[in-house]
Every structure is written in C-alpha cells, then in structure tokens.
Nucleic acid binder design. Structure first.
Lengths: 69, 69
DNA sequence: CTAAAAACGAAGTTGTACTTGGTTTGCTAA
DNA sequence: TTAGCAAACCAAGTACAACTTCGTTTTTAG
C-alpha cells in the first residue's frame, strides 16, 4: 500500500467495522462530518492530532493500534 | 501525562536522543525547522501525516513506535 | 568556561484538514 | 420493483493548526 494516510485509513475502517460502528456514528461522536470520516478512511487526508485522539477514544483503542499495520 | 501531543513529543525526544540525533539534524532531514521539531517534542503541536512519515523514516522506526507509550 | 543544543516567545504565513451541498453506487430486504 | 441505508465520490470554499521567521534566553555537555 502506498502511503501512510492510506494505510491508516484502511486500518481505521477495519477497526470501525469490527466494532459495528457506522461512519455516521463515528462522525457524530468525534464532532466530524461523515464526509471527513470517509475521506480519512480512503486516505484522502489524515486527521489532526486532536481528532486522532477522539477517534481512538470512540473506538476504545489505543492510538498505536490505528498505526499497527 | 496530559494529552496525545505531549506524549508523542516525549516519545519522539526519547527515540531521537537514543539514536544520538540532534534536533537540527532531524530538522534538516525532514525539511522542517529546528523550532518545529522543538515545538513537536514539547507537545505544542503534532506533525502532519506527511511529516510524521518523514520523521519515522529518519529515525528508522515504524510509525507505531512513536505512539508506543 | 565555553560552545553547542535546545527552550521559549510572539507574530505572521500557508498547507491541508475539514465543511458544505449534491450526486451516485452498492447492498439488503419488503 | 422499490425503498432505505451506508458509503463513495466530486468540486469548491473555509478554518485553523501546523509551520515559519527572527530573536533571546536557558540548559546541557565537554
């Protein structure tokens, strides 16, 4: 896989779906839009540190797991 | 420790010093300024994904190790 | 003692994360 | 078929945190 954003996005999608959470639900709980979640998962852009923290919290995983690929 | 930026910064400083690399050298190799490296290590701000990738490459570590705390 | 390394502050710039609005596709089931 | 949900996708604009620049001070190491 090409770059870090794409690898991160794929890992996020994997963890999110494993937990049975929709993009819409994740978006609501992180104060992001569903489009932003979609863009992050597709590797269009990577989240800022503040949002990275929020995402990990909602998924109830350590941040490093999001980079474990 | 308070937030993700601070934890990340501390981990970066630890890994950098362990490898005997100066902030100036890391800055040069990542195309960042020494002040930016300093700010990242002190938790003032977190790096963007592109720079995160560069930093890990210079330190010759996987990105997840920078979040391993 | 000294020189290098790094902290610190303030103020400005810029890249990109993020939004908004809308369309489209894929899936599942009634 | 149709309805409805989840998510991909696209273009264009905004916002803000990352990043810079310049200068000074403090800490650390030799």
């Amino acid at each position: 896989m090409a770059n870090l954003k794409q690898q991160f996005g794929a890992q996020l999608k994997l963890l999110r779906t494993q937990k049975g959470i929709t993009q819409e639900s994740l978006a609501a709980q992180t104060d992001l839009t569903i489009e932003s979640i979609s863009n992050i998962e597709r590797g269009i852009f990577g989240p800022r540190f503040g949002n990275l923290e929020k995402i990990a919290a909602v998924l109830n995983v350590e941040v490093k797991l999001l980079f474990d690929f």
